[in-house]
Design a protein around this nucleic acid. Structure first.
Lengths: 245, 245
DNA sequence: ACAAAAGTGTTCTAGATACACCCATGA
DNA sequence: TCATGGGTGTATCTAGAACACTTTTGT
């Protein structure tokens, strides 16, 4: 399928967002530079990213990188922005790192940013030989390259996109409760929502479908489970005109 | 400032939108391939685009391309999507064209898509030695390369963006009437809006400021002129939570 | 029996929609 | 004086906001 020649000028970076019912997390990959005497020169984190193959589409490259790192395929993945500042890989530690892994550190590299949405509890990460960790987005420290900027723009785009399309469900398990959905909005927009008003609003959306099933094994009244139906959404959505600002 | 070495793998394409109070137009550049006997092999249109210089940022490259073509600088310009399909330049006529202008037609090229917003009546295009024309977006025929796809995605992004940020004003002159603004929304969303309701809505937006000035020289009651104030918008905007779908 | 989250209704306010006539100007 | 687009108000309906108690389960 894919040739073994990579394009040295084009890479893809994936911001992998995962929701665990408490925080919005991002999946970070450890980057540790070891010196000749086996000492650690530095250790920090980066987003999941890599160069693309010459005969590979970028959407395909993004899924490949995600599958490589996590072991699963069917994940919501959206291209949101490209980053191409000539100096984006020119910080000293980034240059050292690039040379250590055998790259020509003088190459101009444009990276295409994607974000992935998934539910932490529904998936298991198979990181191969890399060390990865989930970090709540508000606790992320200084990352490799321009990855803080990439993360921050991904978050902005996610917040915007969630207001105009039903993508929040990608961060939840197939079957979810209304409280889990409400908490998701509260976490992403850092706000509080009234439970009764929220439920009235959701009740009007016919693409959020109640199932004949309740939560089990919880130490309180078990909640009704719901699913999101893409099919119902497609059929019932309508164009609207609104100057929301 | 800018070195003379271009990056053969990275280009920028600008979708230049212009509003003329009747249509949303896009600026197209003629592409004519002339044979050895001076016969026209084909003639069609493309978006405004070019490769970037090695030491140039892509935002800078986009403004440069826009300035080259139109002769003006201060234009709203937004990156919206990158296009990187391996076969995007592989159609026969595109290959012929690339060879005729001295490019290696086998190069893999990723292009970063931008759109520009301006008012046709407020600007004069200085296209240099190129032939350009404004075309209403709904009348655009088959374009060069993957430019129809780029245009169509730019339009989708513009329609989405206009719902959540005040960018429509970039398509109007500095001073505009409420009817011109209403018509803009009607054209872009292909819809009809009730005049009284529209005006009530606008009246609530304090960043659309009435001026002490009216239209002149029109064969009917002259309209009140308004301006958009970015400054007022920045100060009065507030975050909002909304599941609009 | 207690702790924990689920689930539910009413009142008030604000915004959306539908709709028709008079006004100021240039030709 | 006519043609053209500018400008205005009311009544109805729908959606948003504020607010507190009972229910069901596991421990």
């Amino acid at each position: 399928m894919v040739s073994d020649s990579i394009n040295p000028n084009i890479s893809v970076d994936c911001v992998v967002f995962g929701y665990d019912f408490k925080h919005l997390n991002v999946l970070l990959v450890e980057r540790t530079l070891i010196g000749v005497n086996n000492e650690t020169i530095f250790s920090d984190y980066s987003l999941a990213g890599n160069h693309i193959y010459e005969d590979e589409d970028i959407d395909g490259a993004a899924s490949r990188i995600l599958e490589d790192l996590t072991g699963f395929k069917k994940v919501y993945l959206k291209q949101f922005q490209s980053f191409a500042h000539p100096d984006r890989l020119k910080k000293i530690r980034d240059q050292k790192w690039l040379r250590s892994i055998g790259y020509n550190s003088q190459n101009r590299v444009i990276t295409v940013g994607y974000y992935a949405l998934l539910n932490c509890k529904e998936v298991t990460i198979h990181p191969g030989n890399r060390i990865v960790k989930w970090t709540p987005v508000e606790k992320v420290k200084k990352l490799a390259f321009d990855h803080n900027e990439i993360l921050s723009n991904a978050l902005d785009d996610l917040r915007l996109k969630m207001r105009t399309s039903p993508i929040g469900y990608e961060l939840l398990p197939k079957k979810f409760t209304l409280s889990q959905l409400q908490k998701l909005y509260e976490v992403i927009y850092d706000t509080r929502i009234d439970k009764r008003n929220f439920r009235k609003k959701i009740a009007k959306l016919n693409y959020i479908v109640p199932l004949n099933e309740k939560q089990k094994g919880v130490a309180h009244k078990p909640a009704q489970l719901y699913m999101y139906s893409q099919e119902v959404f497609e059929i019932t959505k309508r164009e609207f005109f609104d100057i929301t600002i």
